[in-house]
Simulated assay, not measured.
Amino acid sequence: MDKAINKYGNYSFQYDWNVENCSEIWSSRKAIMKGAKFDNIGLRCISIADGSFETPCKNCKQTFGGHTIIKDKDLE
Rank of each mutant, 00 (worst) to 15 (best):
S52R: 15
A36N: 12
W26L: 13
N59Q: 15
D2H: 05
L43D: 08
F64M: 11
I5A: 07
I41V: 13
I41R: 10
F53I: 04
N40L: 06
W17F: 01
G35Q: 08
V19K: 00
K34G: 11
G65F: 14
D2N: 02
H67P: 02
I70Y: 12
K61H: 08
K61E: 10
Q14E: 09
N6G: 01
N59D: 15
A4T: 04
D16E: 00
I48N: 03
M33L: 12
P56L: 06
G51R: 14
G65M: 14
F13D: 01
L75C: 00
I32N: 02
V19Q: 04
S23L: 06
H67F: 06
I41W: 11
H67M: 12
E54Y: 01
F53G: 02
N6T: 00
S23H: 02
N21V: 03
D72W: 11
G9T: 07
N40W: 02
E24Q: 12
L43K: 08
K58P: 03
F64A: 04
F53H: 05
D72E: 13
I46F: 11
F13C: 02
G42N: 09
S47F: 11
K37W: 01
L43Q: 04
K61W: 00
C57K: 01
K3F: 04
E76I: 09
I41L: 15
R44Q: 10
I46Q: 05
K73C: 01
G9W: 03
D72I: 07
C45S: 02
I69T: 09
I32R: 05
T55Q: 07
I32A: 02
P56Q: 06
K3A: 02
H67D: 01
K7Q: 07
T68A: 13
G51V: 13
N18V: 01
I41C: 10
I5Q: 05
S23I: 00
Y15A: 04
T68N: 13
N21F: 03
E76M: 10
Y15H: 09
S52E: 15
E54F: 03
Y15V: 01
P56W: 00
A31L: 15
C60I: 00
G42T: 09
K37P: 01
E76Q: 10
I41N: 08
C60R: 05
A49L: 14
S47Q: 07
S52A: 15
W26F: 11
G66T: 09
I25T: 11
I69D: 06
K7T: 07
D2Y: 05
I5K: 05
A31H: 13
G42M: 09
C45Y: 01
G35I: 07
I5V: 13
S52N: 15
W26T: 08
N10I: 10
D50C: 14
L43P: 04
K30C: 11
D16T: 06
K71F: 04
C45F: 04
F13L: 02
L43C: 08
D74S: 06
Q14H: 06
G9H: 06
